[in-house]
Design a protein around this nucleic acid. Sequence first.
DNA 1: TGTAAATTGTAGCCAAGGCTGTAAAATAAA
DNA 2: TTTATTTTACAGCCTTGGCTACAATTTACA
Lengths: 146, 146
Amino acid sequence: MTPSLEQLPDEQAQAARFQQARDARNAATAQDYVELISDLIATTGEARSVDVAKRLGVSHATVVKTVNRLQKEGLINTKPYRGLFLTDVGENLATESRHRHQVVTNLLIALGVDEETAQADAEGIEHHISAQTLATFESYLQGHRS
Amino acid sequence: MTPSLEQLPDEQAQAARFQQARDARNAATAQDYVELISDLIATTGEARSVDVAKRLGVSHATVVKTVNRLQKEGLINTKPYRGLFLTDVGENLATESRHRHQVVTNLLIALGVDEETAQADAEGIEHHISAQTLATFESYLQGHRS
DNA sequence: TGTAAATTGTAGCCAAGGCTGTAAAATAAA
DNA sequence: TTTATTTTACAGCCTTGGCTACAATTTACA
Ligand SMILES: [Mn+2]
Ligand SMILES: [Mn+2]
Ligand SMILES: [Mn+2]
Ligand SMILES: [Mn+2]
């Protein structure tokens, strides 16, 4: 059993941790969208908002609204009735996000989590992995090549 | 380098993963609040909303509003001007959350992530750890007792 | 005791990310 | 070429979780 905390962390340090978690949470949507759009284009040739909606499990109206925001933020381009495209910035974010997603998934599997659970948990965990933790995961996987 | 995806996962399966991540995101606030309140009570004898606000790094108005919601949901009790308390349900959630938080932190440290980075990343990761992944982390730590 | 400081509460605002319902446009089929 | 289906767009609503500003209450202290 895990014992109760003996001492609280420093107040400012703790606030900074919570802030980092909130920032990561807020960045998660953009990461999921660009990663998914990139994957759809790579495998099917195009990314229609209908398909994005189905794969995210949200309504198409939600996708349209979010895509509009991400377009204003410079991650996505749209050609009306011709699907979604990524800007260079969006494509870079997608590449980075997909890599991190894959590393997290592989680490969970390497530790013994089964495939589908790993996939599901990684979908949320990935957004909270710092550069240092990512590097640590990568070198662990490096040393445990099957 | 991580290669591009060769094939997309099944549509329903992928939607279910995103849904799980959204559910976890939505449950995160309650977990952070009850864990923090429990820790404050354990170490300082009481949990004042002012202190919760300072440690979360948000305004006290935000805390008051969120506490009201969590009270309606049956996790927290308040004695006006006498601080915050946990219901039995809240205390159980706090215990479970603190344990999971600790396991995640310990795993990151065991893999080589430094203390402060582990603390920060764990603050977000913890909310996306399923029962199976938690068990896997625990047995990894079991086998790597320093 | 009376006043200052700290704490708590309330009101009203905002953005993100959900939703449904309806309309329009494009594509597919008859 | 109509007509039906699919896709996209838009309007309006909701909840969560942020914020500031101001009011009320309690606690501390001079
Ligand atoms: Mn991802
Ligand atoms: Mn994700
Ligand atoms: Mn926690
Ligand atoms: Mn947390």
